[in-house]
Design a protein around this nucleic acid. Structure first.
Length: 840
RNA sequence: GCCGGGGUGGCGAAACUGGUAAACGCAGGGGACUUAAAAUCCCCUGGCCUUCGGGCCAUCCGGGUUCGAGUCCCGGCCCCGGCACCA
């Protein structure tokens, strides 16, 4: 250990990386015995090269993994590749590189980058989604879901990205645009495979309350996304020509049953089955057809829903089962077939949308809820003729509501649904915004969906023993649309396992979010060829103690992962509901105030940083510059600062390393009577305490770096005036620094440790423990306040009686001036901390 | 509009459960070393006033609770994120 840090960090880092791998230090046991820790970071898509977001994510995870390792936990810290997806296919289309080659080349590059950063992964558990030994289990899970009616085929309107030529799940449409290519998403009606995530809506939303160590933002996003509404379904019978209630009718969903006496019309979605009752050839039928055509055309082009509400009077009438009144039935563009029952009762007096619609078409507005006196809600605004000019949407007191007059809204809702339930008019209902997960993709680079179509037997699942259905390689990729697999005759043509006749394979592939919905289980038992994993091994490693990734996955991957876990539970493969105990969402890495991107030209290249400063500096800066969950503004000079810190560590300890290695360790209370040595020892032990607390309980990674900088500064102060006999104390400081640095700058940590006599990797050393003796002092500087304002300090014993502290304070000249001529009314005394003198 | 998260020096940020606001770092200023520069090392750096002892004002704004509030409560402003014809 000598020479300049600058000249040797590269060789030093590489040699320790080799040593970690040679000694297999990150190889986790097949099954942990004793305390375990599963540290997981979101697996990367192999896009080509690592970006700073990856570096930040993985630096945080590696710091925690190294810390836990030194604390003695069996640590599982795996890495893998989310390697199915469209960029690979686009590379093939644009540059003629086979997707598999593009993908494996990128993986090789990025794996080398991860190694060069020194991240401690158990590479023996590496997985890649595009490999048949992984995706066969996607197929296996799909078949299990098919058996349980959790996977089903349905024709419905789906999101269509015309640029990506594929269907998108709702979760993958952001603000009406494709999450991947940002082009406008339209609607198409297609036959698709769906996973019945809606069966778990209630569980998924209720389970959020049992995730206290998840960020509030993630829970809130998921809650909004699932969108639970409590209300009632009410049956409105159709009014027959003669005025009687007909046998059929419509069901509406409402959260405001208390306003039902104000329903002056009803509106159904343009695809509602009741519209079959509109007489063919009637003017209403023609108008309806016109509405459908217009809306469909606009939607296909990606104009989501129009802002203007439009509708057609169907000429049909339905009967309000509470008031008995007959009201007109309309079809409207703003009612969605996919939510609730596809039909609403319209209460324009108390609902803004209904009011807008009623105003446009001159329909009646009736007030049935008045604001409660003194409630602070605004009463319905009315024009001179007493006609409301806006909807009053707040709860209040019922009027014009027959037997329910005078009741509060909440009471009325409860009573009305109970009354309705008795005679079948209404029933309580909870609706969710969350729709089933459409997983069919008309693309090549994904998991083949393991079903086939037989003319005789219909949809036939591929038998388990025929898995995996291998993704064929002889497929022309043109990007012109349609499922590429349909072009491979040898793939499509097969025989039906039931009748032996000819059959066609499904040519769509699975959404790649399937791949990442269960990969964290596979890590536990990554080479299992008989099953996706051994439940006993998963039981030993789970749950994931800490999962780190971007918050942009909150309503995507993080919901799918929770859904899959529940499916696995129902399959008997796991015994818990939630896979992740603690979730951390790291902030973005910005430069110049915006996210790094090629188009903005503000990219910082990890390789360049490693070349100039090394992995330790790169990691240290990403940890130091901001707390993990906040966005990090890149600062080239800040990076220099972190490099300087490591240089200073080196300069302080390298020249004296062998002397310190030879020095004895200080005894428990050695140096206690010498202020500079005692001061240094106190700093050492306080630093241990602070760093441990921040890493263990708070997961703050920026403050430990600060603490270690402080320790270095104080050690340097002592060393500057070094005296004979200081070696044991400098040794303690240096060795402690080496140990505490391991999670943050592991290579320097190892070199320091070795230089000062360590014979093994720091990873095998126990995490240091603070000695309580050095955490307290007998005499302390007591803070003295007068009326809550700092006026000075007095030196007293740490447990001095109050009277002593007060008399010492009075004796202080400065404090005394603030007490002069005033009465001491009260004293607040916290021994060892603070004295507040309240005077008047 | 609804839901969530935030506003602390020139900048990134500290401040554990209410107890010395601004630790640590960056930038800036001054000094040492040097023929010089770089590097390194040391000191200073929230604002205003000062008789150089210190005093006053400061954590988005306005109130409140408290001996004491960046931290707790009420009201408001601004920024960021999510959802948004969801009945």
């Amino acid at each position: 250990m000598n020479g300049d840090y600058r000249d040797q960090f590269d060789a030093l880092e590489r040699s320790w990386q080799e040593r970690w791998e040679r000694e297999r230090l990150w190889s986790a046991p097949q099954r942990p015995t004793g305390r375990k820790y599963y540290a997981l970071e979101m697996l990367p898509y192999p896009s080509g090269r690592l970006h700073m977001g990856h570096v930040r994510n993985y630096s945080i995870g590696d710091a925690v993994a190294r810390f836990r390792r030194m604390r003695g936990d069996a640590v599982l810290h795996p890495m893998g590749w989310d390697s199915f997806g469209m960029p690979a296919e686009n590379a093939a289309i644009q540059r003629g590189i086979p997707p598999a080659k593009w993908t494996t080349d990128n993986i090789a590059t990025m794996r080398a980058q991860l190694r060069r950063l020194g991240f401690g992964y158990d590479w023996g558990r590496e997985i890649a989604a595009h490999r048949p030994d992984y995706y066969r289990w996607n197929q296996w899970f799909f078949l299990r879901m098919l058996e349980r009616d959790l996977a089903y085929r349905s024709r419905r309107e789906v999101n269509w990205c015309d640029s990506c030529k594929t269907v998108l799940a709702n979760e993958q449409v952001e603000g009406g645009k494709c999450w991947r290519c940002d082009s406008v998403v339209g609607k198409r009606e297609l036959d698709q495979w769906f996973l019945r995530i809606s069966r778990y809506s209630e569980e998924l939303v209720a389970g959020l309350d049992r995730l206290p160590a998840w960020p509030e933002a993630v829970r809130s996003i998921q809650e909004n996304w699932i969108g639970r509404s409590i209300g009632a379904i009410v049956r409105f019978p159709l009014v027959a020509a003669g005025g009687d209630s007909a046998a059929d009718g419509i069901e509406i969903f409402t959260t405001r049953l208390d306003t039902i006496y104000g329903a002056t019309f009803s509106v159904v979605a343009r695809g509602h089955p009741i519209l079959a009752r509109v007489p063919a050839g009637s003017p209403q039928a023609a108008a309806l057809e016109e509405l459908r055509r217009e809306v469909a055309a606009r939607r296909e082009q990606g104009h989501e829903e129009e802002t203007a509400k439009r509708g057609v009077d169907t000429g049909l009438q339905v009967r309000n089962p509470y008031s008995g009144e007959s009201i007109p039935l309309w079809a409207g563009n703003f009612v969605l077939m996919g939510y609730g029952t596809g039909a609403i009762m319209a209460v324009p007096g108390h609902d803004e949308r209904d009011f807008e619609f009623a105003t446009r078409y001159g329909l009646n507005v009736r007030v049935v809820v008045e604001s409660r006196a003194g409630s602070g809600t605004i009463p319905p605004r009315r024009d001179a003729g007493g006609i409301p000019t806006a909807a009053m949407t707040a709860d209040g007191v019922l009027v014009n509501s027959g037997p329910y007059n005078g009741l509060g809204s909440a009471t009325a809702r409860a009573r009305m649904v109970a009354d309705g339930a008795k005679d079948g008019r209404a029933r309580e209902s909870i609706q969710y915004r969350l729709l089933d997960w459409g997983i069919s993709r008309q693309r090549y680079w994904g998991t083949p969906i393991p079903v086939l179509y037989c003319d005789r037997d219909g949809v036939v699942p591929v038998p388990d023993q025929d898995l995996p259905v291998i993704l064929p390689e002889d497929v022309p990729l043109t990007g012109t649309g349609g499922s590429p697999l349909a072009q491979s005759a040898s793939f499509v043509t097969t025989t039906c396992p039931r009748c032996g006749g000819s059959a066609r394979r499904e040519t769509d592939t699975m959404d790649t979010f399937i791949d990442s919905s269960w990969y964290f289980y596979r890590y536990c038992d990554a080479r299992n060829t008989k099953a996706p994993f051994d439940p006993a091994i998963v039981a030993a490693w789970f749950p994931i103690d800490l999962y780190i990734g971007g918050i942009n996955q909150a309503h995507l991957h993080l919901i799918y992962a929770r859904f899959f876990t529940r499916v696995l539970r129902d399959l008997g493969l796991v015994t818990f509901d939630e896979p992740v105990v603690q979730m951390m969402c790291q902030g973005m890495v910005l430069k110049g105030g915006t996210a790094m991107s090629k188009s903005k030209g503000n990219i910082v290249d990890p390789d360049e940083l490693i070349r100039r400063y090394g992995a330790d500096t790169t990691r240290l800066f990403t940890l130091f510059a901001a707390p993990p969950e906040k966005d990090l503004e890149w600062d080239d000079q800040g990076v220099e600062g972190c490099f300087r810190f490591l240089e200073r560590v080196w300069r302080l300890f390298a020249p004296r390393a062998s002397a310190l290695a030879a020095a004895r360790d200080p005894g428990p209370k050695d140096g206690a009577d010498e202020p500079r040595r005692a001061g240094l020892r106190r700093k050492v032990h306080r630093t241990i305490q602070k760093v441990t607390h921040d890493l263990d309980r708070r997961l703050h990674l920026n403050t430990p770096v600060s603490s270690l900088m402080e320790l270095l500064n104080e050690t340097a102060d002592v060393a500057r005036q070094e005296r004979a006999g200081d070696e044991p104390y400098l040794k303690e400081a240096g060795r402690t620094l080496a140990l505490l640095l391991q999670p943050l700058a592991p290579h320097v940590s190892e070199a320091l440790w070795e230089g000062m006599g360590g014979s093994t990797s720091v990873l095998k050393e126990p995490w240091p423990e603070a000695d309580p003796f050095w955490l307290t002092e007998d005499e302390i500087d007591l803070v003295v306040q007068v009326n809550g304002r700092l006026r000075g300090h007095v030196r007293v014993a740490k447990d001095a009686p109050e009277a002593d502290a007060v008399s010492r304070a009075r004796a202080d000249a400065r404090i005394a001036t603030h007490l002069e001529g005033k009465d001491l009314r009260k004293t607040i005394y916290l021994p060892g901390r603070l004295l507040n003198l309240v005077v008047q």
